[in-house]
Computed example of a mutant assay.
Amino acid sequence: MRNGITIGQAAAFVGVTVKTVRHYHKLGLVEEPERDSSGYRRYGSGELLRLVQVRTLAAAGVPLAGTGPMLDADAARFGAGLADVERQLTERIDELVARRDTLRRLADGDRALLPDRACAVLDRMPGLGFGPDYVAAQREALVLARALVPEGFDGFLTQLEHRLDDPEYVDLTKRGWEAESWEPDDPRIEELATAMADHYLANPAVQGDPAGLRAWAKASAQYKLINTHRQDQAPVAARLTALTEARLRAAGVPMPHR
């Protein structure tokens, strides 16, 4: 009869479960001991040592598939394998830290999805008289713009900053948002669209820089998705925007086509 201990005792001594030991056997990481005359497998010091080595490497982050080759390698290859695992773990740590930071930014509201500069633009709006619904719509539009037209996002932010510095623009925009209470065929909508277009044409800074306009002009599909967001909730604003853009386009401003 072979001296040794049972699989249950071996698992307990090493600090794993019997199921884990059997999994190690299945993967070929630890050879199964021969059965003794009673039909039981008895684990000796050699198997226990290998179990401890596999468990230790696995706990250190070495994938199970890689533990066998590492344990069977010479000292140089073993060291190189450990260095490679350390590099992978460092990358995972960096990724987890980034995820944790994202969670913290989510708890802080907009800052998970938008840069500080965009958040500052949104923070200005309530003080200028814009209501929470308008600010929420602008927040969503900024998130979509950053994701869908990243090359035009900085220019778009600059445009918004100039617009918020322009009292007449702010007044026209607030009137546009208030127009949601009007009937869809109210003639004041076309009058307001004309006033907005005239203001844009008279103040090039609120139109945006040429590079930004070109980026948006090339992104018609993305522009449509952004511009039609919440259209069902603000149909008059959508019509007002379309009329204003048509007038600007007719005047030669490179507006995207919907």
Rank of each mutant, 00 (worst) to 15 (best):
A112N: 09
A112W: 11
A112H: 14
L113S: 11
L113M: 13
P115Q: 01
P115F: 07
D116N: 11
D116K: 14
R117W: 10
A118R: 13
V121G: 10
V121C: 13
L122Y: 07
D123E: 13
P126Q: 01
L128C: 05
G129N: 04
G129E: 02
F130S: 02
G131T: 06
P132Y: 09
D133T: 09
D133H: 12
Y134H: 15
Y134A: 15
V135R: 13
V135M: 08
A136G: 10
A137I: 06
Q138C: 14
Q138E: 13
R139N: 05
E140C: 11
A141Y: 15
L142C: 06
V143F: 08
L144E: 11
L144T: 04
A145S: 15
A145C: 07
R146D: 04
R146M: 14
A147F: 12
A147K: 10
A147E: 09
L148N: 01
L148P: 09
V149K: 03
V149D: 11
V149C: 09
P150Q: 10
P150V: 04
G155V: 13
G155Y: 13
F156T: 13
F156Q: 07
F156Y: 15
F156C: 03
T158I: 02
Q159K: 15
L160W: 13
E161A: 12
E161N: 12
R163F: 07
R163P: 08
L164F: 06
L164T: 00
D165A: 15
D165T: 08
D165C: 12
D166Q: 13
P167W: 03
P167S: 06
E168F: 10
Y169T: 13
Y169F: 15
Y169N: 15
V170W: 06
D171F: 02
T173L: 08
T173I: 09
R175V: 02
R175I: 05
R175L: 10
G176D: 02
G176M: 02
E178Q: 10
A179F: 03
E180V: 05
S181I: 07
W182D: 05
P184V: 00
P184Y: 05
D185I: 09
D185L: 08
P187E: 03
P187Y: 05
P187T: 03
I189S: 00
I189M: 04
I189H: 14
E190I: 02
E190T: 11
E191N: 04
E191S: 12
L192T: 02
A193R: 04
T194W: 14
A195G: 07
M196W: 14
A197K: 07
A197V: 02
A197D: 00
A197G: 04
A197W: 01
D198P: 01
D198V: 05
H199D: 05
H199Q: 13
Y200Q: 03
Y200K: 07
Y200T: 04
